[in-house]
């Protein structure tokens, strides 16, 4: 895979930073960050709380100004071209924000009217913002599952509903790039799944998603590329599959561990040193391929329930990288 594959025509990256640094007084919140988010990516921006994720997201959006370094979003430098870049970006930063005394629709109407006329993007119809506003608002509310929310003021919403409203606001203009900071906060598991499906669908239609989160599982379940931030530094940035690469070991699950161990010529189970015994019925084998292991077990009459090349979990990779 060459680095240019998967990029939008023109070969631009969706988000590219070089040496991005932000200092607050003596504290360095973000330290020479070189992000490379390609068009079409589902990029997971992973890091513990306080690692500088939100500051980075704010810098990408022109809310916070970098101490040094360059930012390019959708091929244009930020914050200089904010006026041309941001209309094509949908964002959810540090929780949703809405006027509590207004309904969801009224909030979206005000927000949409505040911005410049609709320019482009997959969902925009180019009719001009006023004519299509009602339709776009309904579509966005439909997408996030708030279509039947009625005229209640936002004050009466649950946290999850507010989060959905924030997402609807980000989707309003059919952005080419979605920058989402902890988008599933306050959502129940079903809501999380719904939102994930929505984002997958949008991504399939060409929207790049930049998802910042401290939840490994969320990133692992959704993203194709991952950047790992630790104390302001980018410690890894790679495809999810690469980060979760095979360990070279084989994991087999058998119905009789003792028999399996014998068949494979392993020492018997020792409570002091677990050795290859992992969990109830799992054996982890060094230097034995899946094919070899299954063959030997089947020959010995041990029933194999599962046999896979062992992969690191993302958690393991991240813990390895950040400690």
């Amino acid at each position: 895979m060459t680095p240019d594959e998967g990029r939008a025509p023109g070969g631009e990256g969706a988000v590219v930073t070089r040496g991005l640094t932000k200092r607050y007084g003596r504290v360095t919140a973000v330290d020479s960050l070189d992000l490379d988010v390609r068009a079409g990516d589902r990029y997971g921006f992973l890091g513990p709380n306080g690692s500088g994720k939100t500051t980075t997201v704010r810098m990408l959006l022109g809310l916070v100004y970098a101490t040094s370094g360059d930012i390019e979003v959708l091929g244009r430098s930020m914050p200089r071209h904010a006026g041309r870049v941001l209309p094509e970006v949908g964002a959810l930063v540090e929780g949703p924000g809405a006027y509590p005394h207004l309904s969801a629709r009224a909030n979206l109407r005000l927000l949409d009217a505040a911005g410049p006329p609709v320019a482009g993007g997959p969902l925009a119809d180019g009719v001009g913002s006023r004519g299509s506003r009602r339709r776009r608002i309904e579509a966005a509310l439909e997408q996030v599952g708030l279509a039947d929310v009625g005229r209640r003021p936002v004050r009466a919403y649950s946290l999850g509903m507010r989060q959905r409203l924030g997402l609807a606001a980000a989707l309003l203009r059919g952005p080419r790039l979605l920058v989402l900071d902890e988008p599933t906060n306050g959502l129940d598991p079903r809501g999380i799944a719904e939102i994930r499906d929505l984002l997958l669908d949008l991504n399939a239609r060409g929207t790049t998603v930049f998802l910042s989160s401290h939840l490994l599982a969320e990133v692992e379940a959704f993203c194709t590329r991952v950047g790992v931030l630790d104390r302001g530094r980018l410690v890894a940035q790679d495809d999810l599959d690469t980060l979760r690469g095979p360990t070279g070991r084989t994991r087999v699950r058998v119905d009789d561990v003792a028999a399996g161990a014998r068949a494979l010529g392993l020492p018997p189970r020792d409570t002091e040193r677990p050795g290859p015994f992992a969990g109830e019925g799992d054996l982890v084998l060094d230097g034995t391929s899946v094919a070899d292991a299954t063959e030997r077990l089947v020959r010995a009459g041990v029933r194999v329930l599962e046999a896979v090349p062992e992969r690191r979990t993302l958690e393991e990779s991240v813990l390895e990288l950040t400690t």
Binding site: K22, R23, Y24, G25, Y65, A66, T67, S68, G69, P79
Partner: peptide
């Protein structure tokens, strides 16, 4: 504390 917009 300087930023990219300090001169501005």
């Amino acid at each position: 504390m300087s930023t990219v917009v300090t001169s501005q």
